[in-house]
Design a protein around this nucleic acid. Structure first.
Length: 608
RNA sequence: GGCCCCGUGGUGUAGUGGUUAACAUGCCUGCCUGUCACGCAGGAGAUCGUCGGUUCAAAUCCGAUCGGGGUCGCCA
């Protein structure tokens, strides 16, 4: 990875030179004897009484500056006053370090700068934590002093990668004929999907804008508008609970194209992503990416974003156990549920308490139990073995592909619970057993998502992707009769089990769109109220179109080898959606609320 | 909204009923001409997140609350 990144960073070093300033890591042996002007922060000061060493840090790296007592203008006395994070300007000469005092651990360790002039541009309070990599500091402290945290080389590197990726995307899409077009941040609240962030309108009392969950509707309107190829690096807002890979505001590479089908857009997106991995990491990802149907992904991996860097697939054992004497399994099957298992290779010596822990683990996902059979050195051991005949057991172990030394685990329940529980158990076991090669990059597409899911709470169908997603042509006939079987022209790109992006081919015919609205239990009037402008637009010559959006933060997270997206966002929010640095959100003055015609209805907390 | 983990000098930790609240690092002062996590000597720095309870006695036990993280639900 380094070569390309360093090549790229050379550019900003040249820029620095133009400003009459030299970046720290630009200095090298060949520059010995040259006069330079350095600007940056004091990393460390080592005061030996008669000589002072200062490691000067700028965005590019570190260089050692030497202060001797014979400096002009009292420079040495000034150097004695230097402290960590002071901002300084140093003029001096580059020279090779005396023999034996080179520092091979430092990129500029062969040289040093003899200071001739020192100017303290600004002093600094003692930093709350070290400005260096691999610090062990509570994240809340880092977030409170984010501007300090970002000075750390690790964080600078992440920000640089992020910048580069955005430039690569823009270049790539520009060359492909995409136009970068901005869409409104203040827009109309729409039903479905995530909870909106609302913004009150002062001039329209009682009315609210919503911040976009994504530019979805506008990008479709841009297709109606004949832009043909649009993209935007767009900020999106969703007022839902946070996770390690979810922030209330996040960034998407959003794009849309006219006159395309799935087979036009998927290869193009593969080109984009593989190019980025090549440029940033020097990794070649083979194309085309494998495609898995949603059905296959769920059946084999129990997930719509399968991590296929390892096997341990889910295996259906319904036919083997259907007529057995084990009521837990047979009852579930009789009620239309599923019984599936996974085989953990070489785990037969797993201690009982660990198996109990796994049982607890699957209960998180609603599984009522975790059946298991251990195939140890002295044969099979299991609390459930007594319910089966020998033939059934042999059959079961054969179906599971189990051998001596393995454990097989089973979950019996409703289909979604079985898949969710085993899918996550599979990942958990892989993590514990170290089955995942951390350097592997594994990309695939999941396609043929169902159009609808049934929402038990609302007692109606809801769109799985969104309500503008086109059904597969061959499934249009069963739209009203068997809606749950209708598949969508929707696709997700999955990278190492992380959903990187997703999109769909959109409905461009009004009649189909109205049938979808009807199925979602939305009357024409309601649809007109919510999306009238879009429906109306569709009447004026809408081209077939489709698109996709990538989660930029997640992509950067993977590229930078991080395990949460806070680390790749300059100023992220905490799990409670607040900013520890700026203290947002915060109460506002009564007058501000009054102007907005808003009265608060909360208990006692912060009621102005 | 549920479950789990965490909260002690600036930072990271130790301390599981009675301690002068310990250690490392950082910080301050002095000394030191080749260090690079410089070294040496000395010093300052903590109402143990907050509130309440139990107890003769609480950093320690209990309850609540606040803050941070993970996760389920939720969210593409």
């Amino acid at each position: 990875m380094k070569s390309r990144l360093i090549q790229a960073s050379l550019k900003f070093r040249r820029m620095a030179m133009l400003a009459g300033r030299t970046s720290a890591v630009f200095l090298n042996k060949e520059m010995a004897g040259e006069s330079v002007r350095l600007l940056g922060w004091v990393q460390t000061r080592r005061d030996h009484g008669g000589v002072i060493f200062v490691d000067l840090r700028d965005r590019s790296g570190l260089v050692q500056v030497v202060f001797n007592p014979d400096m002009a203008d009292n420079g040495f006395a000034l150097a004695e006053k230097l402290r960590s994070e002071y901002v300084v300007e140093i003029k001096g000469k580059v020279r090779l370090r005396p023999e034996g005092s080179e520092n091979p651990n430092m990129q500029t360790g062969e040289i040093e700068v003899i200071a001739e002039e020192l100017k303290i541009l600004n002093r600094a309070k003692t930093p709350p934590f070290y400005i260096q990599d691999n610090i062990d500091v509570d994240e809340s402290v880092r977030l409170k002093y984010r501007y300090m945290d970002l000075r750390r080389p690790d964080m600078l590197k992440v920000m640089f990668i992020r910048h580069k990726v955005m430039q690569l995307m823009r270049n790539f899409l520009d060359k492909q004929g995409f136009w970068e077009i901005e869409t409104p941040i203040l827009m109309k609240s729409t039903p479905e999907g995530a909870r909106d962030y609302l913004v009150p309108s002062r001039v329209n009392p009682g009315c609210f804008y919503a911040l976009p969950q994504s530019p979805q509707i506008f990008k479709q309107l841009l297709m109606v508008a004949g832009m043909e190829k649009y993209y935007q690096i767009a900020r999106c807002f969703r007022d839902e609970d946070l996770r390690a890979d979810r922030q209330p505001e996040f960034t998407q590479l959003d794009l849309e194209m006219s006159f395309i089908e799935m087979d036009d857009i998927l290869p193009l997106m593969e080109d984009l992503i593989t190019m980025i991995f090549k440029e940033i990491k020097g990794i070649d990802i083979p194309k085309p990416f494998p495609r898995l149907s949603y059905y296959e992904a769920m059946e084999r991996y129990g997930s719509d974003k399968p991590d296929t860097r390892f096997g341990m697939e889910l295996i259906d054992v319904a036919e083997v156990v259907r007529n057995s004497g084990f009521k837990v399994f047979t009852d579930v099957l009789a009620k239309g549920g599923r019984v599936k298992g996974i085989c953990a290779k070489g785990c037969s010596n797993m201690p009982r308490r660990e198996i109990d822990a796994l049982t607890k683990f699957v209960s998180i996902y609603g599984a009522k139990g975790l059946a298991y059979i251990v195939w140890g050195e002295d044969g099979l051991k299991s609390p459930i073995i007594k319910f089966f005949t020998e033939e059934e057991i042999n059959n079961l172990m054969a179906t599971m592909g189990a051998e001596q030394g393995d454990i097989v685990f089973f979950v019996a329940d409703k289909e979604n619970i079985v898949h969710n529980a085993l899918g996550n158990l599979r990942l958990e076991l892989a993590k514990r057993l170290g089955l995942i090669n951390p350097n592997a990059i594994n990309c695939l597409w999941v396609t043929e998502f169902p159009m609808f899911e049934y929402d038990e709470e609302e007692k109606r169908y809801v769109a799985m992707h969104h309500m503008f997603t086109s059904p597969l042509d061959e499934d249009l006939g069963i739209l009203e009769t068997e809606p749950l079987k209708v598949r969508a022209k929707a696709y997700d790109m999955v990278l190492n089990g992380i959903e990187l992006g997703g999109g769909s081919i959109r409905i461009h015919r009004r009649d189909v769109q109205e049938r979808i609205f009807a199925l979602l239990g939305m009357s024409i009037e309601e649809a007109k109220d919510k999306f009238g402008f879009l429906l109306e637009a569709f009447d004026y010559g809408t081209p077939p179109h489709g698109g996709l959006a990538f989660g930029l933060d997640r992509l950067i997270m993977i590229l930078a080898g991080r395990d949460n997206i806070r680390d790749v966002i300059a100023f992220p929010k905490t799990q409670s959606a607040s900013c520890l640095m700026s203290q947002a959100p915060s109460p506002v003055k009564k007058e501000q609320l009054k102007e907005l015609h808003i009265k608060l209805d909360i208990k006692d907390k912060a009621n102005n």
